[in-house]
Every structure is written in structure tokens, then in C-alpha cells.
Amino acid sequence: MKKIIALTLAVSAIGASSAFAIQPIKGSITYTNPNEVRLTKAPAGSLFTHEFRSDGNHYKELYRVEPNGTVTIVDRQRLDSFDMNDMN
């Protein structure tokens, strides 16, 4: 019985990582075709950011380069919409 419970928990944990993945929004690098974005010169595991506006909000996303060159969204922050350029 303990083996069945342990196996069930392990399978649930594996599936949970994809279930809680951050989904792209309009403006994300991977919004239209996530599998088409491939970086050939960036080492696997490297991180980079991307800032954009979507639906009137300013976002900053953190991406990780996967071993096959595709990119995955690791984090997304909605930034404060106050901008000094709006003052002029």
C-alpha cells in the first residue's frame, strides 16, 4: 500500500510542474508559436528578460534557455505603470 501511495505522489509531482507552468500572454516571446523560438548561441540554462506592454499593463518576463534551444517562461512580473516619460 505504501508503494502505491509513493508512486501516486511521484506521478502527481511530475505532472504538476507542467500544470503550473506560466502561460504566455500577448506580447510574450512564446505567445504565438512557443516551439518556433530557438536560440542557437545561448547556452542551455542561461536566463534573459523581456519587457513589453499588454492590455495597458507593463510586464517583465524571465526566460530560461532549454537544452534543445527553446525558451521557457520562468517568472512574470507586472511592473508599475508609472513612467517618467508620461510626465511630458
Rank of each mutant, 00 (worst) to 15 (best):
E51D: 07
Y63M: 07
I29H: 09
M1Q: 08
P24C: 00
G69L: 09
K3M: 09
H58A: 09
R64M: 10
Y63A: 03
R78V: 15
V65T: 13
R78W: 06
S18H: 00
P34V: 02
G69A: 11
R78Y: 05
L39D: 01
D80L: 09
M87A: 13
K26V: 14
F52V: 11
K41V: 08
T72Q: 10
N35W: 10
D55P: 05
P43S: 12
Y31G: 04
E36K: 15
K2G: 13
G15S: 13
D80Y: 10
E36C: 05
P24D: 11
Q23H: 08
L9P: 01
T40P: 04
M1V: 03
E36H: 10
I14S: 10
A44H: 12
I25H: 00
N57V: 08
S81E: 12
H58W: 14
I73K: 04
Q77A: 10
A16T: 04
T70A: 08
T32W: 05
F82S: 11
G45P: 07
N33D: 13
T32R: 00
D75T: 11
L9T: 01
S81R: 15
Y59P: 00
R76P: 02
T8Y: 06
E51L: 06
V71P: 07
K41D: 12
M87H: 10
T70G: 10
V37C: 09
N85E: 14
R38A: 07
I14V: 15
I73E: 02
T32I: 13
K60M: 13
P34L: 06
S12I: 00
L39F: 15
A21F: 01
S18Q: 04
G27S: 12
R38P: 04
R64N: 10
Y31E: 12
A44G: 15
A16K: 02
Q77P: 01
D75Y: 12
E51V: 09
T32S: 07
P34Y: 04
A19L: 00
